[in-house]
Simulated assay, not measured.
Amino acid sequence: MDLLKQPYKIFLVDDDEDDCFLTSKVMSNLAPCVDVDCIYRGDKMLQRLEVCDPADYPRLILLDLNMPILSGFEVLVRLKQHRLWRAIPVVIFTTSSDKRDEARSYELGANLFLTKPSQLKEMEALFYRYKDAMRSPVQN
């Protein structure tokens, strides 16, 4: 079965509404069955996960680094420290091209680091790279 035809949810955590809109559009063009949930602050995304049933966790989190209240790094640390959330693949999706940000992201447990704006081919590659993680729900 083709991954891009199976329904699944992605959390896009980014305080820039324009970036959220454009990224959501690219993803919906690639895979109309993908439900992209834009959340504009990292603390709000963590609150959503706290009340979410594990069966309804997103299959992927796209996370910006530069946000108010909690930075993407702080959010990533909290995700990877949580017993249930650590299995959710996290892609850092940021305007930063600083190699130190990239290295720190990987040290903290990010699965991939992409610099915005990303090309369409990179977004397609992202879906295929995490097809196994997105195909099955997060395991407890």
Rank of each mutant, 00 (worst) to 15 (best):
L4W: 14
D16E: 11
T95Y: 00
K80S: 11
K9H: 11
L4A: 09
I88E: 00
D2I: 03
L62H: 11
K116E: 06
I69P: 01
G42V: 12
G72Y: 01
P54Y: 01
D14W: 00
I69V: 15
V34R: 05
V138W: 01
V13E: 13
V90E: 08
V34F: 07
C33D: 04
E107K: 09
S24P: 01
L70P: 00
L60Y: 13
H82A: 07
K44T: 03
I69D: 06
R129F: 07
T94Y: 00
Y128V: 04
A55M: 12
L126T: 14
R104L: 12
L49A: 05
L30G: 06
A103S: 10
E17N: 04
M134S: 02
P117E: 03
P117Q: 05
V77R: 05
L22P: 00
D64K: 04
L126I: 13
M134F: 08
R86S: 07
Y128G: 05
A55F: 06
D15E: 11
P7Q: 10
R135Y: 09
N29K: 15
F93P: 01
L108R: 08
L108M: 14
S118R: 01
A125W: 00
R129D: 01
L70N: 04
Y57G: 13
D132H: 02
K121V: 14
D101A: 00
K131N: 03
D14I: 09
C52F: 04
T115S: 14
Y8L: 14
F93C: 07
A133T: 01
S136V: 03
D16C: 14
L84I: 04
K131D: 04
D14P: 11
Y8M: 13
K44E: 07
D56S: 14
L12A: 05
G109H: 09
S105W: 11
T95W: 00
R104V: 06
K44L: 10
R41M: 06
A31G: 11
G72N: 08
C38I: 05
M123F: 15
A31V: 07
D15N: 15
L70W: 01
V91Q: 07
D132R: 04
F113H: 12
Q6E: 15
M134P: 00
Y106N: 11
E74D: 15
V26S: 10
M1R: 08
L60Q: 05
K80D: 14
F127M: 12
M45L: 06
D132F: 02
M45P: 00
M27W: 06
L49M: 12
R135I: 02
D132K: 04
E17Y: 06
R129T: 07
K131L: 02
V90N: 01
E107A: 13
D14V: 08
Y8G: 08
P32Q: 09
S136D: 08
S24G: 13
E17G: 01
C33Y: 07
L70Y: 09
S71A: 12
D16R: 10
V138K: 02
I88H: 01
T94N: 02
V51S: 11
P7H: 09
Y106S: 12
P7M: 08
V90M: 04
K5Y: 15
V91L: 05
D14H: 10
S96P: 10
R83D: 12
L22C: 09
L62K: 08
R59G: 15
E17T: 02
L12S: 06
L126R: 08
D64G: 10
S71G: 13
S97K: 03
Y106M: 13
V26Q: 09
Q81C: 08
T94D: 00
D16P: 05
